[in-house]
Computed example of a mutant assay.
Amino acid sequence: MKKVIRSFGYAFKGISYAYTTQLNFRIHSAATIIAVASGLLLGINASEWLWIALAITLVTITEMLNTAVELLTDLTSPGYNNKAGHVKDISAGCVVIAAVFAVITAAVVFLPKLLLLVNHAA
């Protein structure tokens, strides 16, 4: 049981490292707070919550994996290496793809509700 508890400690240490050292992780965290608050305020339904949760999870996972890949690449190739640069670029590209998915998901879920609010207020 100690091993399991210790492994969770390492995982939270990794999340903390990503949050404290990576500006983009903090930006994504702020976007998560905005998305959750918007979902609560707009009263999205269970299936919409699942899509929002999926988008948040994909962005968070890819951002953390990108951080890990960058650290490992810097460790194994401290000097300039063209292929190491490609590895880091590809990893960052994965985050961009996940973030675009998140923006599209947010638009599909939130825009109709926001338009109803605007039309109702007018």
Rank of each mutant, 00 (worst) to 15 (best):
K3E: 11
V4Y: 14
V4T: 14
S7E: 09
F8M: 14
F8W: 15
G9H: 02
Y10S: 12
A11N: 03
F12W: 12
K13L: 14
G14I: 00
G14A: 11
Y17C: 03
A18F: 06
T20E: 13
L23Q: 07
N24H: 10
F25W: 08
I27F: 12
I27W: 10
A30F: 15
A30K: 13
A31T: 04
I33E: 11
I33P: 02
I34V: 15
A35K: 09
V36Q: 01
V36R: 06
A37Q: 07
A37S: 11
S38R: 02
L40N: 05
L42C: 05
L42K: 01
L42M: 10
L42D: 03
I44M: 06
N45Y: 05
A46W: 08
A46I: 08
S47P: 00
W49Q: 04
I52S: 01
A53S: 13
A53Y: 01
L54F: 14
L54R: 08
A55C: 06
A55P: 04
A55T: 00
L58Q: 04
V59A: 05
T60D: 05
T60V: 08
M64K: 05
M64A: 07
V69G: 05
V69E: 03
V69T: 12
E70Y: 08
L71A: 10
L71F: 11
D74N: 15
D74Y: 12
S77T: 07
Y80I: 06
Y80W: 14
N82L: 13
N82Q: 13
V87G: 01
S91I: 07
S91P: 06
A92T: 10
A92E: 14
A92L: 11
C94H: 08
V95F: 04
V95M: 03
A98D: 01
V100P: 00
V100E: 00
F101M: 04
A102N: 00
A102S: 07
V103L: 15
V103D: 02
T105K: 00
A106P: 05
A106D: 02
A106K: 05
V108L: 12
V109N: 02
V109D: 02
V109E: 01
L111R: 01
L111N: 03
L111V: 15
K113C: 02
L114Y: 04
L116W: 09
V118M: 08
H120W: 15
H120Q: 14
A121P: 00
A121N: 09
A122P: 00
